[in-house]
């Protein structure tokens, strides 16, 4: 029984078995490879996407729970005109990524944080941004979030 949902504005019907983590359905069924596999246990955040506007670590979120939901991946952040989201733009301006593998998840987490809090304080950034980056881009992630919210760096 396919699971109907909306992904990046498009109606889709997932055919994966319903216990399949949404991450794999997005990657293998829809070819949306921007969300990454990092740990499989919701520990690293590389697979972060939005479900109904809030962050979800899709490696442990079964397809069954996606029924009727609105899902956004990194590929769906751009505007309809193809313009980058302001957070993506800030990521470029702050030259955040190194290997880049975790950055889709980092950006999705930051977009949700800013949507919820507007101008997050450094303490709120620390609390919300729990995705792992092995390259150590954290200083520039902080700088990019401040830049995206028109706040001066410390």
């Amino acid at each position: 029984m396919p699971v109907a949902a909306t992904v990046n504005g498009q109606a889709v019907a997932f055919e994966s078995e319903t216990d399949t983590p949404l991450l794999w359905a997005l990657r293998e069924e829809l070819g949306l490879t921007g969300a990454k596999f990092g740990c499989g246990v919701s520990a690293c955040g590389a697979c972060t996407i939005h479900v109904d506007g809030r962050t979800v670590r899709s490696c442990v979120f079964p397809v069954s729970q996606a029924a009727g939901k609105t899902i956004t991946t990194i590929e769906g952040l751009k505007s309809n005109e193809g313009e980058l989201h302001p957070v993506q733009q800030a990521w470029i301006e702050a030259q955040v990524p190194q290997c880049g593998y975790c950055q889709s998840g980092q950006i999705m987490a930051a977009v949700d944080l800013i949507a919820r809090l507007g101008k997050p304080t450094p303490a709120q950034i620390d609390e919300a941004m729990t995705n792992i980056c092995r390259c150590g881009t954290y200083p520039r992630i902080r700088a990019a979030i401040l830049r995206a919210t028109d706040q001066a760096a410390e």
Partner: peptide
Amino acid sequence: IPSKVDGSAQYGI
């Protein structure tokens, strides 16, 4: 970097 902020960069996986 542009390809690493919009999900288009293609890694081995």
